[in-house]
Design a protein around this nucleic acid. Structure first.
Length: 380
DNA sequence: CATTCGTGGGC
DNA sequence: TGCCCAAGAAT
């Protein structure tokens, strides 16, 4: 829209001091994060390990900093280099990723490490174009790695930057249509000397000052440049296309417990929802509830007992899962042959590649079963 | 290009 | 409680 391109051009001149003010703020108020090299170091040419930048950026895709921290530390301890990760077992990576969500990221992480180790001598490409050829690295992550790990002038646009820029310009164009305009604006104001710090400064500003609700405009280093601030409409940006409503799906899950406490598990298909992760036998999750028990869909005949229903909300649908438990006598022999899978002992179960929704279902059937064993509580 | 992909926290 | 959101990518 012509109406939107004009402000971007005008902005270039009037936002001349923007980067200076933002970087001065970042030098004093930047967040301290495990994967970050502080500006005192980057300013003298000390850059972070690209492997660590990549690992953190993939984990941070649609995921909060607080959720990522412990996973990042665990991955770095288990696999300190891209070669180490390339040599890991995929199943070990899936177990370590369990609970973080968006599990295709874990498989792509492993594939990417293998490619970098085998085809790039263990070194990540330094250009956006080169990085984007790798699995799991898209527009944002390629720009972020190029800027942060190699200090190249890439326009890094994530959700934070979208919010900051649409407010600065009071941009009426809704997302995602506004994305090219935002990228062009960022490319125009990008400081040639500190592109990595600039990218992180924009994200820190969005995360700590220019927040979705109740932005702290009074503390903002660039509030004088902000059109939404002048209009008192910061919270109205960014504008977004209306979202589709979430359908409700139903299903049933079957927790078979052996005499020694082991639980029967299987692996989900490698692609799609919770791809490659571990679960107990379940029905499909599109079946309509008919008011009758679902035990006719059980993986084998047994005395299936109703353990209630759990609810779980995914990105694009909600799930009501009926949970059943059967106690199998002896060492797991059933009236019918078992489907593909394995028995997981009480010691192994907490470390399996169990998504959160599956853990919730197991907990409904066997309280405490997925929790890592705690030391005996002393009655102090 | 619209849809498909998790989860936990904040209000 | 329900809705929004978080350093998006793949198809």
């Amino acid at each position: 829209m012509a109406r939107q391109s004009a402000p971007v051009i005008d902005a270039h001149a009037s936002f001349d001091d923007f980067s200076t003010l933002l970087l001065e703020w970042y030098d004093r108020h930047h967040r301290h994060l495990p994967w970050r090299t502080p500006p005192a170091d980057t300013r003298v040419g000390v850059l972070p390990d690209p492997y660590r930048v990549w690992l953190s950026e993939v984990m941070l895709q649609q995921t909060t900093v607080s959720a990522v921290k412990s996973y990042y530390e665990a991955f770095l301890a288990a696999w300190p280099t891209v070669e180490a990760l390339a040599g890991a077992e995929t199943e070990a990576v899936m177990r370590a990723w369990a609970g973080l969500g968006y599990y295709s990221r874990a498989r792509n992480l492993k594939k990417c490490a293998e490619t970098v180790a085998a085809d790039h001598q263990g070194r990540f490409p330094d250009t956006e174009e080169g990085l984007k050829t790798l699995p799991g690295i898209g527009d944002y992550t390629a720009a972020a790695i190029s800027a942060i790990a190699f200090n190249r002038p890439a326009a890094v646009v994530d959700g934070n930057v979208e919010r900051v820029v649409t407010r600065l310009l009071a941009m009426e164009t809704p997302l995602p249509d506004a994305k090219p305009l935002i990228r062009a604006f960022v490319a125009n104001i990008l400081p040639a000397d500190r592109p990595g710090d600039f990218a992180q400064a924009m994200m820190d500003l969005g995360a700590t000052i220019c927040t979705p609700r109740n932005p702290a405009c009074v503390l903002c280093p660039v509030s004088a440049d902000c059109l939404a601030r002048q209009n008192g409409t910061a919270e109205r940006f960014p504008r977004k296309a209306p979202k589709a409503e979430k359908p409700l799906r139903h299903g049933a899950a079957f927790v078979a417990r052996r005499g020694d406490g082991a639980v029967f598990l299987r692996k989900r298909p490698p692609e799609g929802l919770l791809g490659g992760m571990t679960e107990m036998p379940t029905t499909g999750w599109t079946a309509r509830q008919d008011g009758e028990t679902d035990t006719s869909a059980a993986p084998f005949p047994a005395d299936w007992r109703d353990c209630g229903t759990i609810r779980h909300v995914f990105t694009h649908f909600a799930l009501e899962l009926s949970v059943y438990r059967a106690d199998i006598q002896g060492s797991g022999e059933t009236a019918a042959p078992l489907p593909a899978g394995w028995w997981s002992s009480p010691e192994e179960l907490p470390g399996e590649a169990l998504p959160t929704v599956i853990k919730k279902a197991i907990e409904a059937a066997i309280p405490g079963a997925t929790k890592k064993r705690q030391r005996d509580r002393k009655t102090s």
